[in-house]
Design a protein around this nucleic acid. Sequence first.
RNA 1: GGAGAGGUGGCUGAGUGGUCGAAAGCGAACGACUCGAAAUCGUUUAAUAGGUAACUAUUCGUGGGUUCGAAUCCCACCCUCUCCGCCA
Length: 425
Amino acid sequence: MLDQKLIRENPRFVEENLSLRGKVFNISPIHKLTLEKKDIDIKISDLQSESKKLSKLIGLEISKSQNNNSQVIHELKDKGNEFRTKIAELEEKKRILDHTIKKEILSLPNFPSKDAPIGKDENDNIQIKTWGDHFKKENLKSHLEIGESLNLFESKKTTKISKSRFITLIGNGSRLERALINFMLDIHSKNGYLELMPPALINSESLQGSGQLPKFSNESFNCSNDDLWLSPTAEVPLTAFHRNEIINTELLPIKYVAYSPCFRREAGSYGRDTKGLIRLHQFNKVELYWFCDPSKSLEAHRSITADAESILKKLNLPYRLVDICTGDLGFSSSRTFDLEVWLPSSKSYREISSCSNCLDFQARRSSIRTKIDKKNQYIHTLNGSGLAVGRTMAAILENGQQLDGSVKIPDALVPYYGSDFIKTI
RNA sequence: GGAGAGGUGGCUGAGUGGUCGAAAGCGAACGACUCGAAAUCGUUUAAUAGGUAACUAUUCGUGGGUUCGAAUCCCACCCUCUCCGCCA
């Protein structure tokens, strides 16, 4: 959420910064409303002040005279009633304004960082570096073919259970998924992250706090009976964990790692990645999350990205690091580095982690602050996948495939998986 | 799901219509005493928004209502605790 005061006092600055996203933002209607609201705020405050004084006076008069119904007291009460009516009128106006303004502001995305490359869409993203040896032979099998031949997962029968874009992991597939989750959690825990296991059902306020609501209600599953939603990413409960808190500065940065199932409706992606592990309504993810001192988030961003990268390195999966351009940034993010893993069957890179610095955008929505020089300041939040588990499995299957049809498990994962190769049973 | 109790500042806890933003205690900060410390004594100490400031407003779980005036009365909701039932 952007600062309402900034919108009121410097609307052009706000428009210019938002427009870096490649769309035109006209905030002059909200700007006008914020001015109106400020004006009403002042009027209400003045009236309340007078009305309060009057009430005290009435109290005094009543205690002085034994007669509660004297002419004087009646007149004073009438005057009090006038205040009440006026204040009620203004408050009604203010309530409508507040509601409208908040709705509008909650639908505005974060400012892109001035360090982010300027661009329109994903084609303008900039590759920063590549890592690892690419496996580029011909006739490589896709992770879907490998998974089917080794009986690691199943999607056709799964439509009976739920519907398309769900998967059932089987045998070694399930074991590999578990191994990956534990492997990632262990590495990050050793690296200074505190492990949390948050609920998968999330209330509306939490989704609003991290930026999924009100604008993207289409993208999450909703349990309408209960004002609860299936969490699309652990980023949501992790942000909400400290909602409405003032965090002691000495505790910062707070670093969490959380494994969670993630649920996404994938509205608008019909026909894309319909097969395999890449785009599912439900998938597992290990998420990294930082609450940090506002002066230190740039450094933290590099750090969280490096922590996500460390998993790819340990698993010996080739990847590249991409700097997301202003037009392709997520709603809450000011700067995002994507990690894309190499999938040899399609000779392409695929997003496996997205590491974002949201600055104070989520903290403002969620009211998470810290006291700096006796003043409350919004902290900065950062999130990054570390990593998306299903896509990691896909990458291991494709990059580790052997001529005999088996798959080599990366050395670091062997203790978790329990053997060196996945073979047909 | 049934029955009951309760939600007040950093914490404990008093407050049932009028200088109550809230007694008292604990805690914390500062000062005195001390070579230093403990103990003791004294002073200070809620948050949020707006304002350079003086100051103004709001806040006693949340939202409504009654009233000139609500922590206090009324209504709805949320949450916590205890007991019973059910349950992985």
